[in-house]
Design a protein around this nucleic acid. Structure first.
Lengths: 152, 152
DNA sequence: GTTGAAAACAAGTGTCC
DNA sequence: GGACACTTGTTTTCAAC
């Protein structure tokens, strides 16, 4: 993982549909070399997959909320994970440190749909409170810049 | 935006590197027709871009935290946005309703780096408190399922 | 939407630096 | 590890229908 790899990742995050020829030019490599680098990044799992970014409003998910769930027991079980996975509106689920146990990112079409999801969350065992933080406006959501790091 | 478009979006989110021929087969269309559909979805902005998903640990961003910022003034200004944009560790920034004004998603290499970002946030005008919620484990982060909606 | 042909691209080869 | 030249199979793209 050198500077060229980091550049390739940044370029691909900006536009993964560009050709290896273009990619190579941008980083000062031949088409073949650029291709080989990207192949290895995929193989090593640094690139997890190629995907598309979809407009939330256009697919009927204009409503965004974060929910902090407090529970009277450890929420890190497979059962909890599976229960959350079964709710398609829950886009992210994290186990967190602090007074809350779980942090969820939820996208729905309307506030009514959010209520439905919250009701389901309260039905989970041991849930005490679910504090919702409703998003009024998103400033930005962007890809992560690869950083220099000591390891490897 | 019909069921076929929704299927195409879901398929492309799972793997945007597949050919239009494969894509067409999956939804029961010819290569050309599938291509035309996807082209229009891009044109209409439903598909914002093609990108790659990068492994956080591999690019030196193994640490994830959400930060709730309380401020004594409205944080929805362009100045606030620009100040946050200038911090590469801040991956998402949202204006929220409730006791906090701002919700940030921050990815860093270490806890020390998180501290550095927090110091920068406290330097913003009118910031009163910044409550960090540190992620211990991510259950999942997934693409959003397109939903049926009344409009269009 | 479909079909089919031309152009562009990816993926693999060997050789040299 | 990378450049360069070449080949083969696939994919995209763009006609005409």
């Amino acid at each position: 993982m050198d500077d060229i790899d980091r550049s390739l990742l940044t370029l691909l995050q900006a536009d993964a549909s560009q050709s290896y020829a273009t990619l190579g030019q941008s980083v000062g490599l031949s088409t073949g070399a650029a291709h080989e680098r990207v192949r290895k990044l995929r193989e090593r799992g640094v690139i997890r997959r190629t995907t598309i970014e979809v407009d939330h409003d256009a697919v009927g998910r204009g409503m965004l909320a974060f929910v902090l769930v407090e529970a009277s027991t450890w929420m890190g079980s497979d059962e909890t994970r599976d229960a959350l996975m079964a709710l398609p509106d829950v886009q992210e689920a994290h186990i967190v440190a602090g007074s809350a146990s779980l942090l969820l990112k939820i996208r729905t079409a309307t506030t009514e749909d959010l209520q439905v999801v919250l009701r389901r969350i309260y039905e989970l065992d041991q849930v005490l409170t679910a504090r919702s933080v409703v998003v009024l406006e998103t400033f930005f959501e962007r890809p992560l810049e690869p950083v220099q790091h000591s390891g490897s």
